[in-house]
Amino acid sequence: MIKKELKSNIKSFIICLVLLISVFLLVYLIYPFVITDENMATMNELLQAFPEEVLKAFNMDLASIDTAYGWLKSEGFMFVLLGIGIFSSILGINIVFKEEQDKTIEYLASLPIKRSKIMTKKIFVSVFYIISLIWIFTLFNFIALLISCEFNQKEFFLLSLSPLLIGLPFFFFNLFISTLVKRDKKVLGLSLGLVFIFYIVSMLSEISDKVEFLKYFSLYTLADTRNIIANCEINIWCILISIISSVIFASLSYIFYNKKELL
């Protein structure tokens, strides 16, 4: 079953990996040509015109984009987090639910396998793909940065861990949602919508102290990227909340899936 699940989901994994690597490869390739002293001066002038809040939202108050690593820390990682969030959410909503949508569950449920085992095997494959995506991408960035510029390796590896802190909660949250809903194709749209809402809420919470409380309403807060860039450390609470929320959503998924009407 695991082999079949790996095969069924490899397409979305490759698409996401190629997309992320392509964007970053493009940046690594063009950066040496674009970032000249003259261009940087113009860029800095342009950035000064932006309100501080906007720069904060993209971590550009903490990192200068005069190197590829600087871009990676600011805009680059925002893109990565969004990408991993989308990939994890799609996996979470689809991995079990697609069997119901395609009605293949009628066949799968007739086989001598417990529902909980179906869930376990599907979770295993999904987590494998999420971790693989993050680590292949990290490896790619590491090699590219070694070639391109100097960078803080500890900070880089901590940053590379941050997508996992949001990827797993996004996956398990969506898995849980999928055990609650009936066959309805709108669910995927809702799930992706939630990723963007969390993303925007997280950005808004960075803009002003008045709306800082919004960070408690977004899974993206768990990525803790500002803290990593500013202090080269991950807040232990972000790790704990990420693990605890994943465990809670995973447990609820098992409970609800076991009782769910599959057709």
Partner: peptide, 24 residues
């Protein structure tokens, strides 16, 4: 018991509409 594997092994089921994995 829907999770009784012994019974599931002894049962064959053909649904009215056969839906299988299209990519296989």
């Amino acid at each position: 018991d829907k999770d009784d594997l012994e019974i599931k092994e002894k049962t064959g089921y053909l649904p009215s509409e056969v839906n299988l994995y299209a990519d296989l």
